[in-house]
């Protein structure tokens, strides 16, 4: 088996009386493309935020690329953070910078490249994320929802991260754009070898590109495996989730 890049052990999260994660374990290996699903309130986004070191878990430990995200010194954390990319649900683009500057800033803060190569690299990122050239010099506020997501992805992959986290990347996108997004994620995962962990509700993404699906529920991982394995699990939430899909496809044909 390949190297474990994300290692979550005994993770417990409580908000007041409410227990979100209860002794949760999760391992993700290099090169995997993992989709994280679960009903609302099962702590999918919180789990991602705990893995990348934004939200402190109540108990337990998270190791990313061999570094403990809640125990390592700041300098080591900064080094790990440069090796991971995160795309936030609402994009979280810096609103005072143009799209191109959003990406250029990330490159400039971490690497000394010549302006020519840097600008070409910014454009390459935008082009990879499927943004038209004229979008580069717009402010984020002038972009549509789908374009913002693409710009956010372009920024997340600016430094060629080893692990890419995405929070609901296709929510609010039209189906055509969403499928193009899926194709892009497949390329990043298969050809560039980036490990991808995405939180999603999009069944098409799940069936189309996810090779491993992790289902959260009752504070635990209630199912883990490929689609066939997941659909075989006799959990009421999983069954109703996938039966909705069957309903749609049976109407469609």
């Amino acid at each position: 088996m390949t190297e474990v890049v994300i290692d979550v052990r005994g993770l417990t999260t409580r908000f007041g009386q409410q227990v979100v994660h209860d002794q949760l374990d999760l391992q993700i290996h290099r090169g995997e493309l993992v989709a994280l699903i679960g009903g609302s309130g099962t702590g999918k986004s919180v789990l991602v935020r705990e893995i990348i070191g934004l939200h402190r878990p109540t108990a337990g430990d998270v190791q990313v690329l061999g570094t403990s995200m809640w125990g390592a010194p700041d300098a080591e954390l900064a080094r790990v953070r440069r090796r991971i990319g995160m795309m936030f649900q609402e994009g979280a683009l810096f609103s005072s910078l143009t799209v191109a500057q959003n990406i250029a800033t990330v490159l400039d803060e971490n690497l000394q490249l010549s302006p020519g190569l840097r600008d070409a690299l910014v454009q390459l990122r935008l082009s990879l994320a499927g943004l038209p050239a004229e979008a580069a010099h717009k402010m984020p506020s002038a972009l549509s929802g789908g374009m913002k997501k693409r710009a956010a992805l372009a920024r997340a992959i600016a430094l060629e991260p080893e692990i890419l986290f995405l929070d609901e990347p296709t929510s609010g996108l039209d189906p055509i754009t969403a499928r193009a997004f899926d194709a892009l994620l497949t390329f990043l995962n298969r050809d560039l070898g980036i490990t991808v962990l995405l939180v999603t509700h999009d069944l098409d993404t799940l069936l189309g590109i996810a090779r491993r699906v992790v289902v959260l529920g009752q504070g635990q991982v209630i199912a883990d495996g490929d689609i066939a394995q997941i659909t075989a699990v006799a959990h009421p939430w999983i069954q109703s989730y996938f039966s909705a899909r069957k309903l749609i496809s049976s109407h469609g044909t």
Binding site: A120, L126, S127, A133
Partner: peptide, 23 residues
Amino acid sequence: HHARVLTLVQQRLPQLEEAIHAH
């Protein structure tokens, strides 16, 4: 996969140079 990366970047190259000088 190296070939795929090179091919992809090569396809995008002309439009990149254009885009930089566009604004």
